[in-house]
Amino acid sequence: MNIKSLVEADNIAYKINGNKLFHNISFSVKKGEALHISGPNGSGKSTLIRIILGITKQIKGSIYHSKSIDISYLGHKNALKNYLSVSDNLMLQGLSNDNELNNLLVLLGLKKFLDVTVANLSYGQQKKLALLRIFLNKSNLIVLDEPFVGLDSDAQDIVEKFLINEINLGKALVYTSHIKSNIDSKILNLK
């Protein structure tokens, strides 16, 4: 295994109830790299993401995680408590004391909604709130499943800039997206 790689997959395959979802998938993600997993609906993108995260186990092949790996992840589910306010949610995630929090809240336009319950926010606003976890986390691998869905173009710009900056700082990124983005990345195409 290459020491610089954070994640390396070797010939992995996955089946559901005996039906092949994908097979012969190999890739590696090094520090300062981005990997875009693309493919049509139902091609197993989310499953592959979950294999990278270590939640799902591949049927064949092997996947290596670097010892120093620290993942932050945002998928289709936001991991937000609907019945709590924005500030309570941030507190629950242990983000409320972060120095950069205030700037980010202003930047994403969430500042005035601090006392609103999450259930009353729009989908896009909820997504932004969930993305704060990624923004403020000190991890070295960022894994995102459709991060741009529901965001307006301004917010997408902010997220993109942030991600590009993080990659330049030496972090790694794995993401799926149907929405075109300007992130310079390797492409893994699932049929």
Binding site: L53, G54, I55, I71, Y73, G75, K77, A79, L80, K81
Partner: peptide, 14 residues
């Protein structure tokens, strides 16, 4: 149930 539905359980495992 709640942590399962909103994805918090996945965050904890990761």
């Amino acid at each position: 149930l709640e942590d399962y539905n909103d994805g918090s359980l996945e965050q904890i495992i990761i």
